[in-house]
Write a protein that binds this DNA or RNA. Structure first.
Length: 252
DNA sequence: ATGACCTCCAACGGAGGA
C-alpha cells in the first residue's frame, strides 16, 4: 500500500496538479487537507475518473478534508466524536484493514491567542479519541497537516515564531506518539533540513526556508511492513503550487 | 517591518494561513 497526505490549499485551484500527481505516483490512499470547498463543490467525477473512491468533509472557504482510495472506504467517521467542532478537520475510514485518520490540525496563529487555545483543546480531543480508536484498530495511520514541527531539526534554524514549534504543541505531539504512534518519516535517513511546507513569500522554497509539519504516524503493526517514507518536493516547483508538499509512505 | 504571497469572499480590503 502506498499512502500519501497532501495539503492542497484549495482543491479547486490544485485539481490539475492533483490529477497529474495521482497519475504519476499512483498512490493507493491519499488524505487531502484544506479543500476550501463544500462537499457539493468537490470535483468528484474527475477524481473518480482517475480511479479513486472518495469521502469528504467539506467546508466553504476554510478547512475541509478528504480521503481518496483505490479500494472501498468503510466505517467513515467525520470529525472527532464527542467534540463539537464547527471546523471540518477530520475524516477517518477503514481501508483494507487499516484505519486511516486524515486530519487538518488547527494552525494556532500565535502562542497565547484564542486560536492557540482552540488548537490545544482540539489536540486533547483528538488524542482522547485516538486512544480508543487504536484499541479498536491495531493497524492505524494518523496523517495530515499537523501544523507542528515536532523537533528542532524539523524547522529551519531561522524560524523565529513560536507557533508550530512551541513547547505545548510539541508536548501535544508527544502525547500522540505516546499512544503508540511512530513518525514514519523518522524510520529512515534523510538530508538535514528536510521540510514539507515553505512560505509563499520571500522565495522561501528556493531558500529552503520551511517546516516539516505534514506527517504520517503509524501504529506498531504497520512498522514491520513500512519500506519508505519521503516528501515529494516536485509539486512545489509547479506554476501556482500548494505551499505544502505531499508526504508518501510505502507499506510492503 | 503592522511587510512579503496565496485563496477565499454577497470580495475590490480583510481574514486566515504558517
Amino acid at each position: 500500500m502506498k499512502l500519501a497526505t497532501w495539503n492542497v490549499n484549495s482543491l479547486k485551484v490544485r485539481l490539475p496538479h492533483l490529477l497529474d500527481w495521482l497519475a504519476r505516483e499512483q498512490p493507493d490512499v491519499v488524505c487531502l487537507q484544506e479543500l476550501k470547498c463544500e462537499d457539493a463543490a468537490v470535483p468528484r467525477a474527475e477524481i473518480e475518473a482517475a480511479g479513486y473512491h472518495l469521502e469528504t468533509l467539506g467546508q466553504k472557504t476554510y478547512n475541509g478534508v478528504a480521503i481518496l482510495s483505490r479500494t472501498s472506504l468503510g466505517a467513515v467517521q467525520r470529525n472527532i466524536p464527542g467534540f463539537a467542532d464547527p471546523q471540518a478537520r477530520v475524516i477517518a475510514a477503514t481501508i483494507e484493514g487499516v484505519r486511516v485518520v486524515g486530519a487538518y490540525f488547527p494552525n494556532g496563529q500565535a502562542v497565547g491567542s484564542e486560536k492557540f487555545a482552540y488548537k490545544l483543546e482540539w489536540l486533547t480531543a483528538l488524542t482522547q479519541w485516538l486512544r480508543a480508536e487504536i484499541a479498536l484498530h491495531p493497524k492505524l495511520v494518523l496523517t495530515g497537516d499537523f501544523n507542528i514541527a515536532p523537533e528542532d531539526r524539523d524547522a529551519h534554524p531561522d524560524w523565529k515564531d513560536e507557533i508550530h514549534v512551541s513547547a505545548p504543541e510539541r508536548a501535544a505531539f508527544a502525547a500522540l506518539t505516546g499512544l503508540g504512534l511512530t513518525d514514519a518519516y523518522r524510520r529512515f535517513e534523510h538530508p538535514e533540513r528536510s521540510f514539507s511546507w515553505w512560505d509563499y513569500r520571500m522565495n522561501a522554497f528556493r531558500r529552503n526556508f520551511g517546516l516539516r509539519i505534514d506527517h504520517i504516524l503509524i501504529t506498531a503493526p504497520l512498522i514491520e511492513t513500512l519500506s519508505a517514507c519521503e516528501v515529494d518536493k516536485s509539486t512545489r516547483s509547479l506554476e501556482r503550487p500548494s505551499d505544502h508538499a505531499p508526504v508518501i509512505a510505502v507499506f510492503g
